[in-house]
């Protein structure tokens, strides 16, 4: 058989599998992230305590962060490259196009929802990771005697701004769209197909996408319903 000078890593399939595995890693991160975020319902002490514990991990936190950044970069760079190749491969558009599969708004918009999520991640990191957690924006009016509530206060005040909550909720809906195709799709890419289990994987993937989106959205909704945190 013809020997190939392309390495396996350059093959379309392996590059897609890297997108799939990095995607799976980020889904794992989202589950952990949301679980941590739910501590906001338990009040500032629990929430800030969780944040402090994470920071106290020191070098381990940075190992996790670098892993996550690498996964994100790999996912984004390869996905953009693969999408570019796909457009080039089309070679002329059909005058009439008529999907006969299960259609799929989410499938067709993966690259766009992905790019919007990337923009959100940048804004989100500035918002809650980079910004100072001791100053005025962390003081929730009429609570804690005008003292800073740290990260809890920052998140609470941010979500009290309607535009801020609105953008966050919109971003999470987009994330839900992205994951509703992404989670079930990654199993096919890594080669998992089973007559009995694949329909289950599809349902669970779809449900997990909705649960994650609804879970994240529940936080700004909670803040806006309660308005004054119970300490």
């Amino acid at each position: 058989m013809a020997s190939s000078n392309r390495t396996l890593l350059q093959s379309s399939i392996v590059r897609k599998q890297i997108v799939a595995v990095t995607g799976l890693a980020m889904v794992g991160f989202l589950i952990a992230h949301l679980s941590g975020n739910f501590l906001i319902f338990a009040g500032p002490e629990a929430f800030n305590g969780y944040s402090k514990k994470l920071h106290d991990l020191g070098p381990i936190l940075w190992v996790l962060r670098i892993g996550l950044i690498a996964a994100l970069l790999g996912h984004v760079v390869l996905a953009i490259k693969l999408t570019g190749e796909n457009h080039a491969a089309r070679g002329g558009r059909y005058a009439v196009s008529n999907s006969r599969g299960d259609g799929g708004f989410c499938k067709k918009t993966m690259i766009y929802t992905g790019i919007l999520i990337l923009v959100f991640v940048a804004l989100h990191l500035y918002d809650f990771t980079y910004r100072d957690k001791t100053g005025d924006p962390t003081i929730v009016e009429g609570v804690n005697g005008g003292l800073s509530l740290g990260l809890f206060g920052l998140v609470w005040n941010s979500f009290l701004q309607p535009w801020h909550s609105g953008l966050y909720i919109l971003a999470m809906i987009i994330l839900g769209f992205h994951l509703s195709h992404g989670i079930q799709s990654l199993f096919q890419s890594i080669g998992f197909f089973h007559d009995r289990y694949t329909p289950m994987v599809k349902k669970i993937g779809f449900a997990l996408a909705i649960l994650l989106a609804v879970g994240f959205i529940s936080i700004p909704i909670y803040v806006n319903v309660v308005r004054t945190p119970h300490l």
Partner: peptide, 9 residues
């Protein structure tokens, strides 16, 4: 040829 993006068309 392009890459598979699991559309199943």
């Amino acid at each position: 040829f392009g890459n598979c993006s699991n559309h199943y068309e």
